[in-house]
């Protein structure tokens, strides 16, 4: 068997695959955060909890209603997105005229409440969620073994990220959204219902988080803390990519997943902090983020 830089290719490609999987979740989650921040000016700290709720929704749909994975992939984002819409209407919308900080505190509090509620009812040991049978097994790619489900996660998240990018950058609805991000007063003065646009955008961003949660359920256990662990890294990804940049979130999400994977191969001790080191460097050199627009 050949070796690259003294590393067996199995280990290298294995870690790269893991990096891409993590990157998929970073990309979807930071994309949702970027969209929400762009239009609502709210740093949605509940995002991790909403990802967790997506995974729990999938588990509940299966165990209480018998709806399998493929159904959950569609139903869970809608249900969790609807919960997000209620939150936005009842609570978050009252904070738009205040500083970012209030929105951050509110959504952070909501995240703690949601995590606490699920911990209370389901414990912290995690619930198993089976892989859909169609995606069990894997492919031998010659240089590595690729589990089918992991390949599916990467493809699904790429498709969702691209579709979201397309909606925002290439459709009329997306033009409304971009315009309202810049100047909501003027967009309202054209006759567009900006408050409804904001509500639906929040619901969509939350739905993206829940979609990521469903994708994650068969890989990681369904656990009340799964979002809290991930969201800190995702915030670092958003800072690196630049708040409010759609393409930046996607590219940075996948890119940092890969960098994290490579670090795990070449310098395992650094893998837990590499993203934060990059974040610190980016903040020093380009504070608006790699793809950030300084408005």
């Amino acid at each position: 068997m050949f070796e690259l830089l003294g590393i067996p290719p199995q280990a290298l490609f294995g870690q790269l695959l893991l990096g891409l999987i993590n990157g998929s979740f970073y990309a979807i989650l930071s994309l949702g955060l970027a969209i929400i921040f762009g239009l609502l000016n709210i740093i949605n700290f509940t995002h991790g909890a909403q990802y967790m709720m997506g995974a729990f929704a999938a588990w509940m749909l299966l165990n209480y209603l018998g709806i399998p994975y493929w159904g959950a992939l569609i139903v869970a984002p809608i249900v969790v997105g609807a919960v997000g819409i209620v939150l936005e209407r009842l609570l978050i919308s009252r904070l738009y005229h205040l500083d970012h900080l209030y929105g951050l505190l509110l959504t952070f509090g909501l995240a703690l409440i949601a995590t606490g509620v699920f911990r209370n009812f389901y414990g912290i040991s995690g619930l198993p969620y089976g892989m859909p049978s169609q995606l069990s097994g894997g492919q031998n790619l010659g240089f590595m073994f690729m589990p089918n489900y992991r390949g599916w996660v990467i493809v699904a998240s790429l498709v969702v990220c691209f579709a979201t990018w397309f909606i925002i950058e290439r459709t009329r609805l997306g033009a409304y959204l971009r315009a309202a991000t810049e100047n909501p007063t003027m967009v309202g003065a054209f006759g567009i219902n900006v408050p409804r646009l904001i509500t639906l955008t929040y619901g969509f961003g939350v739905g993206l988080a829940a979609f990521a949660g469903v994708l994650a359920a068969p890989i990681y256990n369904v656990n009340p803390n799964m979002g809290a662990d991930l969201i800190i890294v995702v915030f670092a990804v958003v800072v690196i990519g630049g708040m409010g940049s759609i393409l930046g979130s996607i590219v940075t999400g996948f890119g940092l997943g890969l960098i994290e994977g490579l670090t795990r191969v070449f310098y395992p001790e650094g893998s837990a902090v590499v993203i934060f080191v990059i974040m610190a460097i980016v903040l020093l050199v380009k504070p608006a983020g790699l793809f950030g627009r300084t408005v």
Binding site: R178, A179, E182, T185, G188, A189, F190
Partner: peptide
């Protein structure tokens, strides 16, 4: 303002408000 716009009034503001994105 959105209802006023729908009634048939439109504004061209002093700062022009062209959207850069």
């Amino acid at each position: 303002s959105r209802a006023i716009a729908r009634a048939g009034i439109a504004l061209c503001p002093e700062e022009r408000a062209i959207f850069s994105s």
